[in-house]
Amino acid sequence: MNTAPTAPGRLGEAIEPALIQRYLAELDSWSRTRKDELDELDRAALASGRGQELTGDMQLVLALWKAIHDRYQLVFATWDGGRVLQQERERISTLIWGRLDGASGMPGGLAVSLPEACRLNDALAGQLRTKLALAHDATEQVARIREVRAQLERIRDQVALEPATTRDQAVDKLAGLMARLEQINERAGRGADVGGMLAPLEVEATTYERDLIVGNARRRDARSKVLSARELRADLEAREQAVEKLAAQCVATVDTAPRYAVPDVEALGPVPVTPDEIDAYLKKLDRVSQALEFAQHKYADALAEHTELVALLDAYVAKATAQGVAANPDLVESEKQARAVLARSPAPMSVAQQLVATYQTWLQKETTHR
């Protein structure tokens, strides 16, 4: 199963550019593959007649994927093609290791970092796949054992984060899971069919991994409101800069671009320390978070429209090539005009759409008369 990449650096650290670039590429690949997997799981749930039974699980894992994808967009915008100084690299660290959704939190009020959200998504997707018994043939027992072993290593990392009062219990739980896996591995090595033993272990391991991640996030949320507000504010400041870069890229790429004000986190003033003021301040942070999320989606959608239009023209040209009509003078001139307009900075989208549609019309005319 596709598993999330390991995130570089730590909170507050100016991450090395090469590590950021590699992580962005790996996270983008993981995100695209995971979306395809989730679509496959959704189709399988509907085909098996269990769509209603698994609706809650699917909604949670898809919402989590969307939150991860949104944060990837902000990290990518801050990366800005590698044009990053120390300040930008520190902001990227905050975007990666800070709270994923700011004051809005995750579904159910859970607030996690980007790496935690990815691991949680891995666990939930694995749980869904196990429930639906997808791609679990006897010939794949070795691969499944390898995946469980990797999962137990991730659980080991989470156990290290447990408080002293519960760590011994968590260590014992992990030891029990590992002992079961070794028993299964030995039986598989002797040629036995271990599918009946492996499936319950997979379910229990994914459930335990999810519980550890959720528990760690909840312990963070249980800290004082002042510390939580400071953490949220730092995340919002990083998000504000990222959305501003995203907006600048959008304005430079498309005409007419959306025009939404990016909230100024600095205008909120310092984090108060009195109980009477902190609740109101947290509400302000939440409103700023929602406004940032709204602006991010609008600018990202406008950029995506330009990307999709270029891809559509490419598809039409590929079709023309396959049909042997790409060299037709009308098609050549039509493509030239469309690409010239799409390459402008910013590109007038209404004109570009008409020119791509014109190319499509010429293509239809040529292929119809062949």
Rank of each mutant, 00 (worst) to 15 (best):
A143L: 09
R233I: 04
D172N: 12
L201W: 01
R129Q: 15
A320P: 06
L120Q: 08
D122I: 00
Q353R: 15
P272W: 00
Q59C: 07
T256L: 03
L363K: 01
D39E: 11
R50W: 10
L232F: 02
G191V: 01
A338S: 09
Q323H: 11
K245E: 14
D255L: 14
A44W: 06
L85F: 08
G105Y: 01
T307C: 05
E140F: 10
L100I: 01
D42T: 14
N216I: 11
T6I: 12
F294D: 09
L292I: 06
L177T: 05
T130G: 10
L60W: 10
E53V: 14
V271Q: 00
R149K: 13
A222L: 10
R83D: 08
T139H: 11
R230S: 00
W30A: 04
E305Y: 08
D80T: 05
M349P: 00
D279V: 08
E266G: 12
P346T: 02
Q354P: 01
T206H: 12
R83H: 09
Q59Y: 10
R119W: 07
K35R: 11
G81W: 07
W79A: 03
L19G: 03
Q73T: 13
P115L: 02
G269K: 00
A347M: 09
D57L: 15
Y316T: 06
A44L: 11
G108D: 03
G191E: 00
Y359K: 03
H306T: 06
I68K: 04
A133V: 13
V341R: 08
R149I: 00
V356H: 07
Y359G: 02
A135I: 10
L363E: 02
V351E: 15
R43G: 04
P258A: 05
I20E: 01
E16Y: 08
L24W: 02
P17D: 02
G49W: 08
E116Q: 13
V325I: 15
E90M: 14
L227S: 08
V84F: 01
I68S: 08
R154E: 12
C118K: 04
T358H: 13
A150P: 05
A14I: 00
G108H: 02
A7P: 04
R149W: 07
E305I: 06
P275D: 02
S350Q: 13
Q52C: 02
G269Q: 01
N216P: 00
V112P: 01
A18P: 01
V243K: 09
H306I: 11
A300R: 14
A340F: 11
R239L: 02
R218F: 03
L331K: 12
N328S: 12
A188R: 10
H69D: 11
L60T: 10
L41H: 03
R91T: 04
K173V: 08
K365Q: 13
L54A: 07
V194Y: 03
T274D: 07
L124C: 05
G215P: 04
C250M: 09
